[in-house]
Lab assay of single mutants.
Amino acid sequence: KWTITVQGEEAIKWAIKVAEARNLDYTVHIDGDQAHITIE
């Protein structure tokens, strides 16, 4: 299990796209213009 933090709307969209493309189980916690994405 690991967490990445991305900043900015484009980076958030990209990170989610990558997680979905790899069929990963993930949760997103949005904090202002940052998102913390935890991959199970």
Rank of each mutant, 00 (worst) to 15 (best):
K1E: 04
K1I: 07
W2E: 03
W2Y: 10
T3C: 14
T3E: 08
T3Q: 09
T3M: 09
T3N: 04
T3G: 04
I4G: 01
I4R: 02
I4T: 02
I4Y: 08
I4V: 08
I4D: 01
T5R: 03
T5F: 07
V6D: 00
V6M: 04
V6I: 11
V6Q: 01
V6A: 03
Q7P: 02
Q7L: 13
G8T: 04
G8D: 03
G8I: 14
E9T: 12
E9H: 10
E10P: 06
E10V: 09
E10M: 07
E10A: 11
A11M: 13
A11W: 12
A11D: 06
A11S: 07
I12H: 01
I12R: 03
I12S: 01
I12W: 06
I12Q: 02
K13Y: 10
K13N: 07
K13H: 07
K13R: 13
K13F: 07
W14G: 07
W14V: 12
W14I: 13
A15I: 15
A15Y: 12
A15Q: 03
A15H: 06
I16L: 07
I16V: 07
K17E: 11
K17H: 10
K17T: 10
K17S: 14
K17G: 11
V18T: 07
V18L: 13
A19Q: 02
A19R: 01
A19L: 15
A19K: 02
A19S: 02
E20W: 08
E20I: 13
A21N: 06
A21K: 06
A21R: 06
A21H: 08
A21C: 14
A21T: 09
R22Q: 12
R22H: 15
R22K: 12
R22M: 15
N23C: 15
N23Q: 10
L24C: 14
L24D: 02
D25H: 15
D25L: 14
D25A: 14
Y26W: 07
Y26Q: 00
Y26R: 00
T27E: 07
T27S: 09
T27F: 06
V28P: 00
V28L: 12
V28H: 01
H29K: 11
I30H: 06
I30W: 12
I30Q: 06
I30E: 03
D31E: 12
D31N: 09
D31P: 01
D31I: 13
G32C: 11
G32T: 04
G32K: 05
G32M: 05
G32R: 04
D33I: 09
D33V: 07
D33L: 07
D33S: 09
D33G: 07
Q34E: 08
A35H: 04
A35D: 01
A35V: 13
A35E: 01
A35M: 11
H36E: 09
H36C: 13
H36I: 15
I37V: 05
I37W: 00
I37L: 06
I37M: 04
T38G: 02
T38Q: 06
T38A: 05
T38I: 12
T38W: 05
T38L: 05
I39S: 01
I39D: 00
I39K: 00
I39M: 07
I39W: 07
I39N: 01
I39F: 14
I39A: 02
I39V: 07
I39L: 08
E40R: 14
E40G: 11
E40Y: 15
